[in-house]
């Protein structure tokens, strides 16, 4: 369910991810984070199965920017907030690094930035999006697994690409290439 007036969402199409870590590095550089603090991280799933049934996939994981974020409700100083675009972010000036938000979050998203002593989490690159720029992780992803667009446009992107894949395969089998 989307918040009314929500302009853009970050859609993760995990089937395209191949685990290069470009998004992690881009995020760290953009937000000046130490290497062990990752606001977006890639979780390898597998390998599981045996022999020809073996599979390995990659799941980029970041903040879900919940509709009713527990971290915002739990923050004692009001540092954790929800922005106009639905993005959940932590105001560095207000954050005291108590990590109550990290405890409250059911997904363990907020992390302590050991360099600054403040909470670090994905804010959907507010400083960039306010200037009309694409978030750093989306811009760098070589796989095109991250899509930043209005909700209907992002879904359309994935659906069209899947449809094209089917069309190309059929055309190839029919000798039309």
């Amino acid at each position: 369910m989307m918040a009314p007036g929500k302009r853009n969402i970050l859609l993760i199409e995990a089937s395209r991810c191949f685990g290069c870590g470009g998004c992690e590095a881009a995020c760290q550089l953009e937000h000046d984070l130490p290497p062990e603090t990752r606001c977006i991280r890639i979780v390898p799933l597998g390998p599981v199965g045996e022999a020809e049934e073996m599979t390995l996939s990659f799941q980029p994981v970041t903040c879900s920017h919940c509709e009713f974020p527990a971290c915002v409700a739990a923050c004692p100083t009001g540092a954790m907030q929800r922005g106009s675009d639905g993005e959940v972010f932590s105001d560095r000036d207000l954050c005291i690094g108590c990590q109550t938000c990290a405890v409250a979050c059911p997904f363990g998203v907020p992390q302590l930035n050991t360099t600054t002593g403040k909470i670090a989490k994905c804010d959907m690159c507010r400083s960039r999006t306010e200037q009309g720029l694409t978030p750093a992780c989306v811009l760098t992803c070589p796989a095109g697994a991250l899509i930043f667009a209005p909700p209907s446009r992002a879904v359309q992107e994935v659906r069209l690409q899947e449809a094209l894949k089917v069309a190309q395969t059929l055309a190839t089998e029919g000798g039309e290439r």
């Binding site: 290069c20 590095a25 550089l29 070589p142």
Partner: peptide
């Protein structure tokens, strides 16, 4: 070749 994309190594050398 890269069309704006970079891998982790291409970004992390700054660190």
């Amino acid at each position: 070749v890269s069309q704006g994309r970079l891998c982790g190594r291409g970004r992390a050398f700054l660190q």
